[in-house]
Write a protein that binds this DNA or RNA. Structure first.
Length: 686
DNA sequence: GAGCACTGC
């Protein structure tokens, strides 16, 4: 067996940080190599080669002696797969306790869990398991290492607010600052006060470590001081673990560039001319610029002989058909140089298996993001990065990190979540990054108008508790609950599933779109278009999909996104189960679309708009706030312009566009939300 | 007549 630090033995060598109290590990802590069992020798060898391995003793020491340990590590250090195993080996999973490791993404949860199961030589779902939405691969009383999304852990807190079965919770990728990670961190800090024996490990990129440490550093109250005497430090420890990335040489332009597309193209050609073989990855802002740059390079290659025939230029953005996206993964032909011109889809989502990527960055992103992009060039060997802005700009004008999601999003879902967990004082909640009080008050108002919160800002019964049970935007949840009284729950659950998969912009639209197939896809859409609006159109598509036997050919023929429809089926199935659990009777209204529209109104009444009289360009005004809005051209009601409509989301580009629009009768509003519309006397509902 | 990215419950 390998040797671990154990309480009571001599403590590892650690150095105090000059900033006071924060511990930094000094490095060089190679644990005395010891023989492991022959059976797992090769896996054990692989594990020992990971950079994190030599910090094993230090990590276990810090976790033993500190309530919170912050691990700073680059990708490739092995922290995600190894630390949970170290903890288990050191006994943190004994006596029926569990070790949890959270990830922001489902895919990562599955990948890490199966890797760890493999390393430990156990079957996935036994000792090592994972839980993500729709999938629980754990076994009670057997699973001791549990990987899960942070969203799932938040849901678990609704049943067990103190997370009593866990001895250690590792929050991985905390620097990504997703909403659920931020809520989780805020709640875990609270849990720690009630459960001093609980240990937290926060894994974060360098740039965020100090902020995390400040967040978890807390005032020492009397009871906490007693714990300190018991040997648990409340001051968070910080440990840096090096990664395995390669060096990336950074170049800046000397003067700001005028036309960055042109500058990117020139840089590509210059690299091609002067640099040794190696592929190039270019980041531009959007589809138009990318298509433009691809064209410019093609033109240049045609007119100037010196660049041909060496360049293979490939665009990459989400709107591109899947087959064309996949071209970027194909190996570069011998003697050629691949140039991928991409949106920031290539920043994190994809791992490009290409050799020696050169990389250029444009647009005012954060320093953290610039670093991430540069890192793409150093995955397999040293690389170079050309930034099309001056170093002075990088140093003095770019923000350190992107604004945390929680400070730029709608807080409605998040507040209801906290309410359901019994956090009454929302305004006083201790966030790693506080949203503005205005945003929180706005969200509280929406929840009040939905009848989810009462006059004392407490969850109403049953509506408030029912809405909290449904893992969707509260407006959608309210619509589902209302469908019960209208006898159209089957239809509304379908609508809810469609709305919830196409969160923002075009990501997972049920329609296939893109260049070149515009006309065909528009015509296909007309076959399903309903005069009532997009929601009813969705029902027509869903019906057709079911009648085809859920066929992918049918989807292909009708320009419907098969992948999105599978997702709709999955979400729909979960929603049906939840609906039944909270007492909603599953019932179809057959062809009565008026009740469907009434149910939509019950959830989305706050998004009502009226067509401006004498408007020639389809201008609407919102009833709440008189904001100028237009129907999005992707809607079936575009240019139809009914007088009264409700939208389910707003996209702002050059104008405010309403996506997913349905026509309504204004008299339904008083029925759906009398308290809301009684106050709107300046907007007569006729 | 419009689309930078898309996670999670």
């Amino acid at each position: 067996m390998a040797q671990f630090w154990k309480p009571g033995t001599e403590k590892p060598r650690l150095v105090d940080d000059e900033e006071g109290g924060v511990l930094f590990f000094s490095g060089g802590f190679s644990s005395s190599s010891s023989s492991s069992g022959y059976g797992y020798a090769s896996i054990e060898k692989q594990r020992q080669r990971l950079p994190v391995y030599k910090y094993r003793t230090a990590i276990l020491y810090l976790v033993e002696t500190h309530a919170t340990t912050i691990i700073v590590g680059e990708t490739g250090s092995g922290k995600t797969t190894q630390i949970p195993q170290f903890l288990k080996e050191a006994g943190w999973a004994s006596g029926g306790r569990l070790i949890a490791c959270t990830q922001p993404r489902r895919l990562a949860v599955q990948a890490v869990a199966s890797r760890v199961a493999e390393e430990m030589g156990v079957k996935l779902g036994e000792e090592v398991g994972y839980t993500i939405r729709f999938e629980d691969v754990t076994k009670p009383d057997v699973t001791v290492l549990k990987f899960l999304t942070d969203g799932v852990l938040l849901r678990e807190m609704m049943d067990d607010p103190l997370l009593t079965k866990y001895s250690v919770i590792m929050v991985d990728e905390a620097h990504e600052r997703s909403i659920s990670t931020d809520i989780l961190l805020g709640l875990l800090k609270k849990v720690q006060k009630r459960r001093p024996e609980l240990r937290l490990i926060i894994s974060s990129a360098t740039i965020e470590a100090k902020a995390m440490s400040d967040f978890f550093r807390k005032r020492k109250k009397r009871r906490e001081l007693e714990n300190e005497e018991n040997g648990i430090q409340l001051e968070p420890a910080i440990l840096s673990v090096e990664g395995r990335g390669f060096n990336v040489q950074i170049n800046y332009v000397e003067e700001p560039v005028q036309d960055y597309v042109q500058a990117a193209v020139s840089t590509v050609l210059l690299i091609h001319e002067r640099e040794p073989p190696g592929d190039i990855l270019v980041f531009l802002t959007g589809q138009d610029d990318i298509d433009g740059a691809v064209q410019l390079i093609a033109d240049e290659v045609q007119t100037s002989k010196k660049h041909s025939p060496g360049l293979v230029v490939l665009p990459l953005y989400s709107g591109l058909p899947r087959a064309e996206q996949e071209l970027v993964f194909s190996p570069t032909p011998r003697g050629k140089r691949k140039v991928i011109i991409s949106t920031n889809i290539a920043e994190t989502s994809l791992t490009l298996e290409i050799t020696d990527v050169e990389n250029l960055v444009v647009a005012p992103i954060s320093k953290a993001s610039a670093k991430q992009r540069a890192g793409r060039a150093g995955r397999v060997r040293p690389g170079k990065c050309y930034r099309l802005y001056a170093e002075e700009y990088f140093l003095n004008h770019m923000s350190n990190e992107a604004i945390p999601e929680i400070q730029r999003s709608n807080l409605v879902s998040c507040i209801i979540h906290l309410k359901a967990l019994g956090i009454d004082n929302i305004l006083g909640f201790d966030w790693p990054a506080s949203p503005s009080p205005e945003a929180m008050i706005r969200a509280l108002e929406v929840l009040y108008s939905l009848g989810v919160l009462d006059d004392d800002a407490k969850l109403t019964s049953p509506t408030g508790f029912q809405v909290a049970e449904i893992p969707l935007d509260p407006m959608i949840s309210k619509m589902i609950i209302a469908s019960n009284q209208f006898g159209c729950s089957e239809e509304i659950i379908t609508v809810a599933a469609v709305l919830s998969i196409q969160v923002k912009l075009f990501a997972l639209s049920i329609w296939i779109s893109g260049r070149g197939i515009q006309k065909e896809s528009d015509e296909a859409k007309l076959r399903f278009a309903a005069a009532e609006g997009d929601h009813v159109t969705f029902l027509n598509v869903y019906k057709g999909f079911l009648q085809s036997g859920k066929s992918s050919q049918w989807c292909h023929k009708n320009y419907v996104n098969y992948h999105a429809m599978r997702k709709v089926l999955e979400v729909r199935e979960q929603l049906r189960r939840i609906a039944q659990r909270i007492g909603i009777v599953l019932k179809s209204c057959e062809s009565d679309m008026q009740v469907v529209r009434k149910a939509v109104t019950a959830g989305f009444f706050a998004n009502t708009c009226r067509l401006e009289e004498y408007s020639h360009n389809g201008m609407y005004k919102t009833i709440r706030g008189s904001q100028e809005v237009y129907i999005h051209p992707s809607s079936v009601l575009f240019r139809v312009n009914p007088k009264w409509i409700i939208y389910s989301s707003l996209v702002s580009t050059d104008r405010q566009y309403m996506r997913n629009v349905i026509s309504i009768d204004p008299s339904w509003l008083l029925e759906a939300a009398p308290h809301f519309y009684q106050l709107q006397q300046s907007n007569p509902l006729h």
